[in-house]
Amino acid sequence: MVTAALALVMLAGVPGARAERPLLPGVGQADRRVPVDASADPWRSVVRVQTNLAGRCTGALVGPRTVVTAAHCLFNPRTRRFLQASSLHVLFGYDRGEFTRHVTVAGVVTDPAYDPAAPNPLVSADWAVLTLAQPAPESVPPLPVSTAPLPAGTPLMLGGYSQDRAQILMADRDCRMLGERAGLLVHDCDATRGTSGGPLLVRSGGGGWAVAGVGVAAGNTPAVRNFAVAAGRFAALLAKDTAAGQP
């Protein structure tokens, strides 16, 4: 495992501990989230996305040098602009301040329709594709992307580095698809701040897991209604890059 000064920057952004567990948006009273092994499938393909401003979100490896996440994670509200790629870092296998690999970002693509500075941003366009400066570790397999329809009741999983347990990977492994609304996938996976950009996982044809979307917004508790951008919004870009021989 690797421990670096970068981890200290992350810790500087962690809120102080509270005597009582806060009521978190997007997490129900039962809170089905559990710690998962960041070195086991499919969770080893889930990454922590860190910015030079100590912001942090979650992402998923979908190609040897390609990570998908939420675009709002890359936005600087002070300058009202997206951060430069050089300000972004991807950590593999992050667990309690240690990680197996730190990779910088060489390029970022966001949806032109998404403007987080607008009064009412188009949330269904809140996705970003990161091109890594170096390939991911060979031990980390990219997750496939699924654009298949998700009927209500489809079993799902969603994991990420939540604000209340930011040092470990937490996941809801027993949640369901609820439907669609305003171009977004609606699900009942427990998730809160910090999980933005985390992959909404669905079973693939081969029995593994595929990325059906990326988490972008949390509903109110206790009736969890959380939202993800469908993978169909960025799948064409990934396919285009693959056809062009890009990672």
Rank of each mutant, 00 (worst) to 15 (best):
V2K: 06
A4V: 02
A7T: 06
A7P: 10
L11F: 10
A12L: 13
V14Q: 07
P15K: 08
L23T: 12
V27G: 00
G28V: 01
D31F: 11
D31A: 06
D31K: 01
D31Y: 09
R32C: 00
R33L: 06
V34E: 09
P35V: 12
S39E: 07
R44C: 05
R44Y: 00
V46P: 09
V49S: 08
V49A: 07
V49E: 09
Q50F: 15
T51H: 00
C57T: 00
G59K: 00
G59N: 02
L61W: 06
G63V: 08
P64K: 11
R65P: 09
T66Y: 10
V67H: 07
V67Y: 11
A71M: 02
H72C: 02
H72D: 00
C73N: 04
P77V: 10
P77E: 06
R78T: 15
L83H: 06
Q84C: 05
A85E: 02
S87K: 00
L88M: 10
L88K: 05
L88V: 09
V90K: 02
Y94I: 04
D95V: 13
R96Y: 13
G97F: 07
E98V: 14
H102L: 08
V103A: 00
A106L: 13
V108F: 02
V108R: 03
V109R: 07
T110E: 10
D115S: 14
P121Y: 06
P121Q: 08
S124L: 03
A128S: 02
L130G: 08
T131N: 04
L132A: 10
Q134M: 13
P135W: 12
A136D: 12
A136I: 11
P137K: 03
S139A: 03
P141K: 10
P142T: 09
V145F: 04
T147S: 04
T147I: 06
A148I: 11
P149Q: 12
P151G: 13
P151D: 14
G153W: 14
P155M: 08
G160R: 05
Y161S: 13
Q167L: 15
Q167W: 15
D172I: 04
D172Y: 04
L178G: 01
G179R: 15
G179T: 15
E180L: 07
E180P: 06
A182W: 06
L185C: 09
D188F: 03
C189W: 01
A191R: 05
G194T: 04
G194R: 04
T195S: 11
S196E: 08
S196I: 03
G197F: 05
G198H: 07
P199Y: 01
G205E: 14
G206S: 07
W209L: 02
G213H: 03
V216G: 03
A217I: 09
A217H: 04
R225E: 14
F227R: 00
A231F: 05
R233M: 02
F234V: 05
A235P: 03
A235Y: 06
A236D: 15
K240M: 01
A243P: 11
A244V: 11
Q246D: 14
